[in-house]
Nucleic acid binder design. Sequence first.
DNA 1: GTTGAGCGTT
Length: 239
Amino acid sequence: MSRFGRSGPPPIRDTYSLLVLNITFRTTADDLFPLFDKYGEVVDIYIPRDRRTGDSRGFAFVRYKYEDEAQKAVDRLDGRLVDGREMMVQFAKYGPNAERMYRDDHRGRDSRRRSRSRSGDRYGRDRYRERDHHRRSRSLSASPDDYKRRGRDRSPSRSRSRSYSPDDDRKGGRDSLSPARRSTSRSPRKTPPPRKTPPPREGSPARRNDDRSPVGRNDDRSPVRRNDDRSPGSRSPST
DNA sequence: GTTGAGCGTT
């Protein structure tokens, strides 16, 4: 997988993790390796992937051996066009281990200032301030589906337990007929669906007991509506 | 087939 070559993450002695964001979903560690390796010694590169789909999340972690090299890579690779997309390189913050905290300037390699009139602010990450968008659409869209599917295959015993719940029961029953019915009334207009052939419950070959829902009957009942009609005209003053 | 802010182990 994203492993660099060994069957596991290398020991974190003094390696610094860089977070690469804004990379294409098809970019792999192998693609970033030659890019980052050119600026310093890359210890390992890891790209978190989705366990359901297996696709990369769009960001990768590049582990450098020295901070100065990592910093250099950040300045050089940050904003670099990769696969047609600009990848943002920055030091990892929430790493599994705060290895970054161990950064010591006395190493000697830090001779060069990290500031170096870098044009970091030039791009500015604020341009993405509109992050209000969905965080992980794929994650959310796949979650419910997975759970639902498994729930069915789960075990009949569990289903029964849920059936007892009035809420679940009603939902499940309606869910089955929901899509079908909605299709008919999918008309752009607000016209109510014309009742074709009233379903004779007695002649129904299949058991449609579920159809008999108190809600449906309630729908027919519109006490409010009647009240309204009789308000304006029917109102006949006795005196 | 899609997506686009963020933070990591198969």
